[in-house]
């Protein structure tokens, strides 16, 4: 009993700092409601080709269908997939995606000129390009040198009973419901998906990957 009370008290103390939490949607005030606000990252072996890896990033989470009509990628924001293939959590390769005039440009995978917080694009890096798929249209896919790219609005693939978790943290509930309620049901995101041959990202057993959004200065 004492342990339970301690636990709930601790939850209550932190509840005030949480208003909306998800995978990474809207998590920090500095990026909230901007084109650089990452919602999610996925990386997995391609269901179509076991020699390929899929990288998928989503931004601008929690779009209603009506808001999706006019939702656009920020042309000043780069979405950068980082790949570490020697285990030091420093990027050895990047895939840099930028958006301009209805097109997505995906450079890489290639070794970046610099690592860390600031990036530029090597104009000689391999490029895959596609039109950004408009809301309501069939997916437009661009491919070059074995790399495929897609960008456009999609259903948010994330699912979570965020509301009940908030109630637990707030002290008004002590457990999840069964069944739970997906707080992301019926909401969209802007997604960029890149599929690349595994041979382009590393030769070892595994890689580490993470997503960064970077704004043009």
């Amino acid at each position: 009993m004492k342990r339970k009370i301690t636990f709930l008290t601790a939850l209550l103390a932190i509840a005030t700092s949480i208003y909306l939490i998800a995978a990474d949607h809207n998590e920090a005030l500095g990026v909230q409601d901007t084109g650089s606000d990452i919602a999610d990252l996925f990386a997995y072996q391609s269901p179509q080709n076991s020699n390929n890896l899929v990288f998928a990033a989503t931004v601008k989470g929690l779009l209603s269908p009506s808001a999706t009509t006019n939702a656009q990628f920020d042309e000043n924001v780069m979405i950068e997939f980082n790949i570490d293939n020697d285990g030091d959590a420093i990027e050895d390769l990047v895939i840099q995606c930028i958006f301009q005039d209805g097109q997505v440009y995906a450079y890489g995978p290639y070794a970046p000129m610099t690592t860390g917080l600031n990036s530029s694009i090597d104009t000689n890096a391999p490029l895959a390009q596609a039109g950004i798929t408009p809301y309501g249209s069939n997916a437009i896919v661009g491919s070059s040198n074995g790399v495929s790219v897609f960008a456009g609005p999609r259903d948010d693939p994330f699912f979570f009973d965020l509301t009940q978790f908030g109630a637990i943290l707030g002290g008004s509930a002590t457990s999840f419901n069964d069944p739970g309620t997906d707080a992301f049901e019926g909401t969209n995101v802007l997604a960029v998906v890149v599929e690349v041959p595994k041979s382009m990202v590393g030769t070892g057993d595994s890689i580490n990957t993470w997503i960064e959004t970077k704004r043009k200065q």
């Binding site: 995978a23 990474d24 920090a28 500095g30 990026v31 901007t34 650089s36 606000d37 990452i38 999610d40 990252l41 924001v77 780069m78 950068e80 917080l117 600031n118 990036s119 530029s120 580490n208 990957t209 993470w210 997503i211 960064e212 959004t213 970077k214 704004r215 043009k216 200065q217």
Partner: peptide, 9 residues
Amino acid sequence: VYAQEDQMG
């Protein structure tokens, strides 16, 4: 030059 704003693994 693009400067970092958000990150996620």
